[in-house]
Simulated assay, not measured.
Amino acid sequence: MTLTTGSESEEPPVRRAVCPGSFDPVTNGHLDIIARASKLYDVVHVAVMINKSKKGLFTVEERMDLIRECTTEYGNVEVESFHGLLVDYCKERDIPAIVKGLRAVSDFDYELQMAQMNNGLSGVETLFVPTNPTYSFLSSSLVKEVATWGGDVSHLVPPVVDRALGERLTNS
């Protein structure tokens, strides 16, 4: 006769993390960080920030659709929007970790303060991932600026984002 303690049938906890940002638009640098996080965590939430005081090039819904299309191959990425404190988003979804990419030392200064504040408010940890050197200069703002002036950004964003940028900038 075998006695069970109940622990044998318990599933291991799901490891969750969030990659937050405005993603206006999502770049290859963003996708590199999301892809790397998806290998470390069971579920990666991509949280698209809603900032009503800023007029984005793409709506929040368009950004979410673009990210979904670009991350389908990972199979463990969930894309949502949020408004408010990131720690509240994490608490509501039982997410203990934030994953952030760091391009340079200047990113670290700001992100360290945010990480310490988030941890102090809620105990949520921040994992810093060094950006692939190929994308160390890359930002959504630079992509939009170059694309606005007709520059080729096809090597900086996925093809679906490059097409969406072309259509948006041609029609504005």
Rank of each mutant, 00 (worst) to 15 (best):
M1C: 10
L3A: 13
L3G: 14
T4F: 14
T4I: 11
T5D: 13
T5H: 12
E8V: 01
E8P: 04
S9M: 07
S9L: 03
E10N: 01
R16M: 04
A17Y: 02
V18D: 08
C19I: 00
C19W: 04
P20D: 06
S22V: 07
F23N: 01
T27Q: 06
N28R: 14
G29W: 04
H30N: 00
H30F: 00
L31G: 03
L31H: 05
D32N: 07
I33E: 04
I33P: 01
I33K: 05
I34C: 02
A37S: 09
A37R: 01
S38I: 00
K39I: 02
A47F: 00
M49E: 10
M49L: 14
I50C: 03
K52D: 07
S53R: 14
K54P: 03
L57A: 05
F58Y: 08
F58M: 07
E62F: 00
R63M: 04
D65L: 01
D65E: 10
L66Y: 05
I67K: 02
I67M: 07
R68N: 12
E69C: 08
C70M: 13
N76M: 03
E78D: 09
E78I: 07
E78W: 08
V79C: 12
V79G: 12
H83N: 14
G84D: 14
L85Y: 10
V87E: 08
V87Y: 13
C90I: 07
K91T: 10
R93D: 03
R93K: 12
R93P: 06
I95A: 05
P96H: 04
V99Q: 14
K100H: 12
R103P: 14
A104M: 13
A104Q: 15
A104T: 15
V105E: 12
S106G: 09
D109M: 05
L112K: 12
M114T: 03
Q116Y: 04
M117T: 00
N118G: 02
V124N: 03
L127G: 04
P130K: 02
P130G: 09
N132P: 11
N132S: 14
P133E: 13
T134D: 15
T134V: 15
Y135C: 03
S136T: 10
S136A: 13
F137M: 11
S139C: 12
S140L: 02
S141R: 11
V143M: 08
V146D: 05
V146A: 13
W149Q: 13
W149S: 12
G150S: 06
D152K: 09
H155G: 15
P158W: 13
P158R: 12
P159S: 11
P159D: 13
V160S: 14
L165M: 10
L165S: 11
G166N: 11
R168K: 10
R168C: 00
R168Q: 05
L169N: 06
L169A: 06
